[in-house]
Amino acid sequence: MKKTLTILGFLAVFPAGVALADDDCLVPMADWQPRDVVARLADENGWTVRRIKIDDGCYEMDARDTEGRRIEVTIHPATLQMIEFEYEDEDDDDRRDKDRGRDRDHED
């Protein structure tokens, strides 16, 4: 009985059709802009693209801005609107390299 009440309570809080993550892009592939248009958008902003991938139905771009800082940009695939823009933390890279036994300042 408690399990049923828990499930009903959950459904009341999260009604059907509401996504848990509202930054997903729910667009049919037929309506998507081509990947080269996304690359052109990056070029127009002066970004150097490292990778363009699809995440949660959105384009996600790993790049460097005009000042060389690492950025991650989430782009709506149909409208090409920027949904999210964030700077990547270089300290995370240093920490990850040290965990792997490498020091970025002293790489061979």
Score class of each variant (00 low, 15 high):
residue 62 D to A: 08
residue 93 D to G: 01
residue 82 M to G: 02
residue 78 A to V: 05
residue 5 L to R: 08
residue 11 L to A: 13
residue 69 R to H: 13
residue 27 V to S: 06
residue 7 I to Q: 09
residue 70 R to L: 15
residue 75 I to G: 08
residue 88 E to V: 14
residue 12 A to F: 10
residue 66 T to C: 01
residue 62 D to W: 05
residue 28 P to M: 09
residue 57 G to N: 08
residue 10 F to L: 15
residue 93 D to Q: 06
residue 18 V to G: 01
residue 61 M to K: 04
residue 103 D to W: 04
residue 41 L to A: 12
residue 106 H to W: 07
residue 11 L to F: 11
residue 86 E to R: 13
residue 13 V to R: 01
residue 82 M to V: 15
residue 39 A to W: 02
residue 19 A to E: 14
residue 76 H to W: 04
residue 19 A to W: 09
residue 6 T to R: 06
residue 14 F to N: 14
residue 43 D to Q: 14
residue 62 D to E: 14
residue 42 A to D: 09
residue 57 G to I: 03
residue 95 R to N: 04
residue 47 W to M: 10
residue 65 D to F: 05
residue 39 A to M: 10
residue 37 V to C: 00
residue 59 Y to D: 06
residue 57 G to R: 05
residue 2 K to I: 07
residue 84 E to K: 14
residue 55 D to K: 12
residue 8 L to M: 13
residue 46 G to R: 08
residue 60 E to F: 03
residue 7 I to N: 01
residue 81 Q to A: 14
residue 43 D to F: 05
residue 47 W to H: 08
residue 55 D to N: 09
residue 104 R to W: 02
residue 60 E to D: 10
residue 76 H to A: 09
residue 1 M to G: 14
residue 23 D to N: 15
residue 67 E to T: 12
residue 80 L to N: 03
residue 9 G to F: 09
residue 83 I to P: 01
residue 26 L to W: 04
residue 43 D to M: 07
residue 30 A to K: 13
residue 82 M to P: 10
residue 72 E to L: 05
residue 27 V to H: 01
residue 8 L to T: 06
residue 1 M to N: 08
residue 34 P to S: 14
residue 96 R to T: 11
residue 60 E to I: 13
residue 102 R to M: 14
residue 96 R to S: 09
residue 91 D to F: 02
residue 51 R to K: 15
residue 100 R to K: 11
residue 48 T to K: 07
residue 36 D to N: 14
residue 33 Q to K: 15
residue 15 P to D: 04
residue 38 V to H: 03
residue 62 D to N: 09
residue 29 M to Y: 05
residue 80 L to K: 03
residue 84 E to G: 05
residue 15 P to F: 06
residue 50 R to Y: 13
residue 39 A to R: 12
residue 16 A to P: 00
residue 84 E to S: 13
residue 62 D to C: 00
residue 87 Y to I: 14
residue 28 P to I: 04
residue 63 A to S: 11
residue 103 D to H: 11
residue 73 V to F: 02
residue 49 V to A: 10
residue 18 V to F: 06
residue 63 A to T: 03
residue 32 W to R: 04
residue 60 E to G: 07
residue 68 G to E: 08
residue 11 L to W: 04
residue 54 I to Q: 11
residue 4 T to M: 06
residue 65 D to W: 05
residue 81 Q to P: 00
residue 25 C to I: 07
residue 36 D to A: 09
residue 3 K to T: 15
residue 17 G to K: 03
residue 1 M to D: 07
residue 26 L to Q: 08
residue 6 T to F: 11
residue 101 G to N: 10
residue 107 E to F: 05
residue 15 P to I: 06
residue 61 M to R: 03
residue 99 D to C: 02
residue 9 G to M: 04
residue 21 A to M: 06
residue 47 W to P: 04
residue 58 C to E: 07
residue 1 M to V: 12
residue 40 R to P: 00
residue 90 E to P: 01
residue 46 G to P: 10
residue 97 D to C: 07
residue 43 D to H: 10
residue 26 L to F: 08
residue 33 Q to A: 15
residue 45 N to A: 13
residue 107 E to D: 14
residue 5 L to A: 07
residue 23 D to K: 07
residue 56 D to N: 15
residue 75 I to P: 03
